[in-house]
Design a protein around this nucleic acid. Structure first.
Length: 577
DNA sequence: GCCGTTTTCGGCCCGACTGTTTTCAGTCG
């Protein structure tokens, strides 16, 4: 089992233990362990095999988890997990997807009524058998019936761009409410996760009722699942959840911090507060001996400062090492920002499957403040996109040379190509042609179902080609649509580092490839990252912001990102690479 | 199950809302 498998096993173990009503801290320990394993930059098996090293030296992995890792590496399975799976009715997990139904109530339903499927649960509700149980009544039964539809709609996560468009709609709707003094979207959206599970809206207002009424009239609302004095939840299209919280102005920073999360980050923050004799909630920071008197909370900076910490960028708040960093003033000095980006090194034109001409793409890039770009149309293997053969490519490059010669402001178009790595291994275009390019991207588009060894060998072969500068979308995943191909990224990272090549962070919200975890690992290998839009039209250039945010989540500083470099720096790097 | 500058046992973040309760447990974020 590899690290991802082990982490996944611990996650599943935590889920199952939770369903069984186990100790919450034990469950947290398994989740923490899963996270720690995912962050390792080398295989667990290698660490176990090295007698001079201990898995327990990593925070979050104790004797028990280390032992279980050893079992999984040796036996390729975890007997305890198999046992737990066998004795946990599969319907339990499905039932907890029903809002308001947690582990305890679900277990009671299974135990008392012998429920084995969501359909049986529906029948039991319709026949009034649920409300006869202790702790249940007519209202709960109705809630379960209504919730069944939500569980079945599977209220999946939205991609960040889909979440963003919902945020725009909510913002413009809520802005009409005059009693709103401040409005911020928090949660995983603010942290810039690649997908969001719900939208969290934080509002400062003297009149919470008016704000809630306004949200109630949101055109996309299908139901209101909860409404109290300061807190409200609605369901919008496809049962997606939106949470609203109204707080006083003096608590805005504390509430924003709390509402932004992540859960793990908040647990760590509050644990740290306790060690300092303080307590933190969404209203502010207070001393443990005077919990009513808030000493900080108007802004996030104030809250973090009260805990002796630098402000932490939302993208880093995942309960990893960000608190240690902030404590030691060792956070990434400055995370990359959209304003740092001066180039885009992967885009297409009408020569292949793009929607705009070279001139139009350049004009759009210029207007977005870029100083240079690379035109990288497809190579001939991508016949559906009318990929370029040698002749057409050389003609395009002549066109680019002529275009560059006409520019007086120093804007430069690099002669590039997104060259396929053929199923059989070699590059789609001959080396003599690639040698003439300024910038060569190598991509896997075909044969994505090949074996791990085959795909890895293809990519390693491309990295060894002296003309290849970078591998695009290194895992080929499409969020929610297509899984990554089976590739040994560890080997890819090592080869890229050794050959001095770059890797792409494809900024398209459908890809965001490399993923955050893989990006973290790549950066630890010292590999330069290019954040590219892979634009197929002028509008496609605007996805850069998603890529930048993903990069920030991995702690990328500007100098680690090729697109922040001046053209001279890039050209120098290309020569020595 | 993890962890340690009040340490190897006894803590472990905190509050809102709901339903079924006569004071609180369960759920959620």
């Amino acid at each position: 089992m590899n690290n991802a498998d082990i982490a996944h096993a611990f996650e599943e173990l935590a889920d199952l233990l939770e369903l069984r009503g186990e100790n919450a801290f034990r469950i947290r320990a398994y989740r923490g362990g899963a996270k720690a394993i995912l962050e390792l930059t080398e295989p667990v098996a290698d660490i176990l095999a090295d007698p001079s090293r201990e898995l327990t030296s990593f925070a979050g992995i104790g004797a028990t988890l280390a032992e279980k890792c050893a079992v999984m590496v040796a036996q390729n399975c975890l007997p305890q997990l198999d046992e737990l799976r066998a004795k946990t009715p599969p319907v339990l997990l499905k039932m907890t997807r029903i809002p308001g139904l947690g582990a305890k109530k679900a277990a009671l339903l299974v135990q008392e009524l012998g429920i084995e499927s969501l359909e049986e649960l529906r029948q039991a509700c319709q026949e009034g058998r649920v409300q006869k149980l202790k702790g249940f009544a007519a209202k709960t039964e109705q809630q379960i019936l209504a919730g069944l539809e939500i569980a079945e709609a599977a209220s999946q996560r939205l991609r960040i761009d889909q979440g963003e468009s919902l945020v725009f709609r909510l913002r413009s709707h809520l802005q009409a409410c005059t009693s709103i003094e401040q409005l911020e979207f928090a949660g995983s959206f603010r942290r810039g996760r690649e997908t969001v599970g719900d939208i969290d809206v934080l509002v400062v207002s003297q009149n919470a009722n008016e704000v809630m009424d306004r949200l109630e009239s949101f055109p996309g609302r299908v139901s209101t699942t909860l409404r109290g004095d300061t807190k409200m939840s609605i369901r919008v299209d496809d049962q997606f959840q939106v949470d609203l919280r109204v707080v006083p102005a003096e608590s805005f920073g504390a509430a924003l911090q709390y509402f932004t999360g992540s859960k793990e980050h908040n647990v760590a923050i509050r644990g740290r507060a306790r060690k300092l004799g303080l307590t933190v909630n969404e209203y502010g920071v207070a001393r443990l001996d005077a919990p009513e008197e808030y000493i900080a909370g108007r802004t996030e900076e104030e809250l973090y400062a009260a805990l002796g910490l630098q402000w932490i960028a939302p993208e880093l708040r995942e309960g990893r090492h960000e608190i240690e960093w902030a404590e030691q003033g060792a956070a990434p000095h400055r995370l990359v920002e959209l304003g740092d980006i001066v180039s885009d090194l992967h885009m297409h034109t009408t020569a292949t499957d793009g929607g705009n001409t070279l001139e139009e793409m350049v004009a759009a890039a210029r207007s977005r403040g870029l100083l240079y770009i690379a035109i990288t149309d497809h190579s001939k293997r991508v016949s559906m996109a009318r990929g370029l053969d040698e002749t057409r490519l050389l003609a395009q490059w002549q066109q680019i040379d002529a275009f560059n010669a006409r520019q007086s402001d120093g804007f430069r178009v690099l002669k590039g190509i997104e060259c396929d790595i053929l199923e059989s291994g070699p590059m789609d275009l001959p080396n003599e042609v690639l040698a003439e390019a300024d910038w060569v991207i190598a991509s896997v588009h075909y044969g994505q179902k090949q074996s791990r060894v085959q795909i890895t060998d293809r990519i390693l072969g491309a990295l060894r080609n002296p003309h290849v500068d970078i591998i695009a979308h290194p895992t080929g995943r499409l969020l929610g649509a297509r899984p990554a191909y089976d590739v040994d990224l560890q080997a890819v990272f090592e080869a890229a580092a050794e050959q001095g090549k770059a890797l792409e962070l494809n900024a398209s919200p459908r890809r965001l490839d490399l993923s955050e975890e893989n990006l973290l690992a790549a950066v630890k290998h010292g590999i330069p990252i290019a954040i590219n839009t892979d634009a197929h039209s002028i509008e496609g250039l605007d996805v850069m912001r998603y890529g930048v945010q993903q990069g920030r989540r991995a702690g990328l500083e500007p100098q680690q990102v090729i697109n922040t470099w001046s053209l001279e720096t890039l050209l120098q790097w290309l020569e020595h690479e």
